[in-house]
Design a protein around this nucleic acid. Sequence first.
RNA 1: GGGCCGGUAGCUCAGUUGGUUAGAGCGCACCCCUGAUAAGGGUGAGGUCGCAAGUUCAAAUCUUGCUCGGCCCA
Length: 957
Amino acid sequence: MTDTPKNEAQDAAEKPDYKDTVFLPKTAFPMKAGLANKEPAILERWENIGLYQKLRESRKEAEKFILHDGPPYANGNIHIGHALNKTLKDLVVRSQSLLGKDAPYVPGWDCHGLPIEWKIEEQYRKKKRNKDEVPPSEFRAECREYADKWVDVQREEFKRLGVMGEWDKPYLTMDYHAEATIVSELLKFAESGQLYRGAKPVMWSPVEKTALAEAEVEYEEITSTQIDVAFEITAAPNAPKLQELIDAGEKIHAVIWTTTPWTIPVNQALAYGADIEYGLVEAINVEELKGKKFFIARKLLSAFNERLDKQYDTRVLLNGIVMLQGSELAGAMAKHPMADKFPDSDFYNKPRPFLNGSSFVTTEAGTGLVHMAPDHGEDDFTLCKANGINPVFAVDGDGVYREDWAWLPRGDERAGSVINKKFTAKDGPICSDLRETGALLSAADDFQHSYPHSWRSKAKIIYRCTPQWFVPMDRSTQEGDETLRQKAVKAIADTRFVPEKGRNRISSMVEGRPDWVLSRQRAWGVPIALFLDRKTGNYLNDSAVNARIIEAFKTGGADAWFNADHQEFLGDAYNLDDYDIVTDILDVWFDSGCTHVFTLESDIWPSQSWKADLYLEGSDQHRGWFQSSLLESCGTRGEAPYKALLTHGFTMDKNGKKMSKSLGNTIDPKKIINVNGADILRLWAASVDYTEDHRIGDEILKGVTDTYRKLRNTFRYMLGGLSDFDESERIDPSDMPELERYILHRLALVDAQLKEHINNFAFGPYMRTLSSFAQDDLSAFFFDIRKDCLYCDAPSDPKRRAYRSAMDILFHALTRYIAPVLVFTAEEIWQSRFPDDNDSIHLKVWPEIDAAWQDDALNDKWAFIREARVAVTEAIEPLRRDKIIRSSLEAEVQYPLQDLPISSEEFTELCIVADLTDGALSVTKTEHYKCGRCWRLLPEVSEDGDLCGRCEDVIYG
RNA sequence: GGGCCGGUAGCUCAGUUGGUUAGAGCGCACCCCUGAUAAGGGUGAGGUCGCAAGUUCAAAUCUUGCUCGGCCCA
């Protein structure tokens, strides 16, 4: 079993066993953590002693640090992204609190919105109920209940992560007081003239007669009718070659191609690409096309030709006439193909301008000229709007042209829904009419492409302009005032960004964003509580009315708007018959943009105050919450609701790929908590560089667990070494040996670094500084050297007392340092040494480091000594490998003593070797015998197993 | 397709205004200890700094292109 020589074994048997006289570390603190089991009990204890309230009490007079929580959506279990986000917030809150500040944390939830509406609708579908037949108040009540349920679930999950906060009183965007605040903020925008009614194309389902969100849309392959339509060019002032021909009476036609023939009746303009090359061609061998000249992008000529070939069932020969650059089309005008057919229609007889659409017009497909229907496309809408062309709302909600429309109006026997395949087919009414006027160059019902459909009805959807409410970005409320955009840009400049690159990102977004669309045609949200004057179309702006609305919301929530007697809001001054009631609800981003108002400014949470010191969210929130809060606050208060913004990246799988259910590479935080413990997940969050995208996976978690184990054992060793430590034993640092003073100096440096990291929210560097101090300075150096002293010196020995006193200082400091990260372990450690039912490590403040501990001269000296020590250990290694010596205690070292700033005795101890003599660095095996108690090999020991002088003194006094 | 961000040992990260042989911790391999013991100590092997070109006496670092990945838009 062992190769121990027989005589040695016999000798050992004859010598007394001194083990019981050695002062080994004693602790009940287990090496194995068992966090998954232990953590829930610790949580329960915190709850029982009211830790959060105790902490508030103890920081009552302290400087505040307000981290305002960005609300997660109350739907579904938490995922790894939530875990990272909430952990980082908790790290900030706890570390600021550790620094002595009062850092309350009020968590919140985002409760309104589409996803919850869907869930309820889905339940209705299962029960075969029709949503439209359910009273809005009932529907909304079910949404509320659903959100409540998920708030409860997520709350438990967050608590289990060790996140400390006011969980009993979170903020919910659906709380009545919140809804009242949201509507009151909206009315501030209204009262200050920062609200207008405009139009915008939205995805619309003619079957459900409702607007759809992106997520309600699915794409499917379908076959559509593709047509080429000729628009006669009537003027081209910047294209002399064209203008000449026009003046000469030639018929020149711009050719456009579309797969939505139903948009031709609503065409209002044509778009070209300024850098695209165009050519004018004529068809020379087809009777129907004779005498016409076609204008088209050169690159797309052959594709156009093929369509003509098919149309006329022959090889159509096209003859080029002139070429020109797209930019020459500036100022050109065309005529709608139906102009002559409807001579009384102003709409069809207005000239169609050529607009510069370089940002979206390509030569990938079509003709390089795009027909613009601002009612039915985003590019169309934006470009037309910029050129003063407004939508005409020709298509009704059910997809039929409105009654008073000139071409194919509702009521016409050929009228139909624009998503009806027959209506748009090559033989349908649109194509037939165009053909009659000679404008239809080709039509084929054969174009396959993917097209959006309603997720619910599976019917085709269209883009359709609808009236919406907007907050203007570039309007001054009063002469000389800054616009919202200007205020927001300024507020960004006044904000601290961690990391700094976030500033750039949100700036460019705010600088370029369009007006804020506030309205949604939905049910589950805060209504845009406005009265529209039927005659003028303006909203009623009366603060007395608004005050009544806000009051009603406070007591009855947003339902007040849907259930109320609206005349009561209006009072005696107005007659309800003169007004339309707006039933749109607010964009949920407006809700969340108001959280700073109803949380920080509310008296419900006296601990909170405006403005927040920090908002902390994922980088996607530059467009989301950071921005909605910024715009809301700038619109109502003229400045940002936060002093600093911290953004984190996203958590990827072990290969750096995004996690998704379909890839099956998601990692469930709950699983990590239940297997490894929340402290491991927290340590992971504190280790990665959260400012970038970062990874998680088994290997990474194993590394985190290893780091944790090392740390835990360092604490376990300290707990053992400090068992029964008594105040009477304490020695003042100024009286300690140099080694202790050097370590306290290191502690002072580390302490300063850690503090700086905390104030930069740099948790990765924080943990690395801490771990490497525990590993390199303590475990591998200080503790290793002082093991002999701790185990074998007399308890009254000043050296041992000094060591234990230093260790006590380290213990107090280190337990505090790890507390914000390893919240459970820190408590376990603390309670293990200082059991107290009413106490907690999390009530403590940052350790006090005596400025006198820092001693740079000592540092330089000991840096040199440590290098010498490394040289010695390196020199020992070959002998160990050759089995000449085993323990370093058997090594006798020669070292040039004149180089050493300390005595050879001290250096012997530091190197944990037998003896040290002067000479060039070399190592041999010592001749000395081993003390039976302390195992050191010393000249005074005459035989293995005998006691050395020190040990004899310790045992026999 | 556009804007912004990133790619350094197996893993997590350092790497200052370009300047010796690109570092640390963990892991791994080997050794020691068996009185921190499912611990502790020591030594060592690992890198074309995503790829390519350019600027320069000198590039992980500056420039350009490409590539891979991410967020936000379209």
